[in-house]
Design a protein around this nucleic acid. Structure first.
Lengths: 227, 227
DNA sequence: CCGTATTTGTCCGTATGTATG
DNA sequence: ACATACATACGGACAAATACG
């Protein structure tokens, strides 16, 4: 009966080489060890991880289905190239989903949940005033995750999460300035106000617009190579 | 330079055994050769398809990431069990996405596109009056696909499509009666009217509510085994 | 509770296809 | 254009874990 799947201590005792390889590839991609468009050499990666090619191939299949990499038959797996327009599409879907989350939440959110959100906003306020992005970022992440989770719709959580992860390929975090954090947190307040008012439409707009505004903040700096 | 990936004639000359296995497993699931919760025996399936276990395993990884099957370590792959509540969640996300599609469309749909939609509605009208579900179904499918595609957001198309496919596991099509078809088509008219009015909010509501109504039509018959 | 059978997990060898000089 | 080198695709075998009697 020894726990094997959920290993809380360290990362030894991996449940399976495939899932280990999957997490490892994901980490390598996120940390920039692979560049978009670059091919992942199965043999080299398998050797590097000290395993055979089988689990590596299976892990890549999963990542491909999740949109992190692209599989080209007889050519190999390539790090997914997210174009500017592509990123905009993902942001748009994410905004729609986040806004819809607001609609659902407006009718069911509790006072305790609103209090928790306000607490997070206070933390972000402090971080924003200090231009401390390292403190702002995790609270911001928690804020968004809390909202999505509160929807009570597990599938919404999964779908939204997948979209967010795809956006990480188009690395945009860290681009927000001090002013960006303050603007973002003002939108957070409007979100909570919208939810507290029980106005589904206002909540939708607040949460939808927040994602779009975040997109503009993140992608604004990239607006130079017009198609 | 012979086309190899898109084989239009028959299913010989498959591009890869993995993708072939994937389509085949999907077909077997959809056609009910596997029941929800049932385990897929890798060896048996590989033998049945005349291939080895490698491609089968890789195909299952993809299907698992898409939510069609579930992987349990050291146990095997099982046909995804969609509970009633789970199906409701998927329908809800789908409704939110479809409604958001309406919001996007309200601002950009063309007269020609509206005409095309009305043509499809006419076809469905005829089929509904004749209680001819076999004629109604494909037109209905085209109607929805056309709307989603018209959003111009490729990611929205993909995300929506994945959700629809998951619902097929919870086989609900064919349950709509003649009255159901008529009610559904009335909603179609409201969708087109909402889009034509350029009222984003009205379009959202029309398209969102249509999915929810479809859910109730499809799942109403199953409302007997209350948890 | 233990031994056996079945199935999954992993590795390696070979064939086929692609890129390069 | 051809031959070579290399990477992927596939098959088969062994080891580990699970299920059954």
């Amino acid at each position: 009966m020894a726990d094997k799947e959920t290993d809380s201590s360290g990362f030894l005792r991996a449940q399976s080489l495939t899932s280990m390889a999957q997490r490892e590839i994901e980490r390598l991609v996120m940390e920039g060890h692979y560049s978009p468009g670059e091919r992942i050499n199965e043999n080299a990666l398998a050797t590097r991880l000290g395993i055979s090619r089988g689990p590596v191939r299976e892990a890549c299949r999963t990542l491909a289905a999740q949109g992190l990499v692209q599989l080209i038959p007889n050519r190999g797996v390539f790090i997914r190239v997210i174009t500017e327009e592509d990123a905009k599409s993902v942001y748009e879907v994410r905004a729609g989903l986040f806004g819809y989350c607001g609609m659902l939440l407006a009718g069911r959110i509790t006072r305790a949940q609103l209090d928790h959100l306000e607490l997070l906003i206070e933390q972000m306020e402090v971080a924003a005033n200090a231009s401390d992005f390292d403190r702002y970022y995790p609270a911001n992440l928690t804020f968004h995750d809390f909202l999505i989770s509160a929807s009570g719709n597990e599938r919404l959580v999964r779908t939204y999460h997948d979209l967010v992860r795809q956006l990480h390929l188009f690395r945009t975090r860290g681009l927000v300035s001090g002013d960006g954090m303050k603007a973002s947190n003002r939108e957070h307040r409007e979100i909570v106000a919208g939810l507290a008012s029980r106005d589904a439409q206002r909540a939708f707009k607040a949460m939808h617009d927040h994602v779009i505004a975040g997109r503009d903040r993140a992608m604004g700096a990239i607006a130079h190579a017009g198609s």
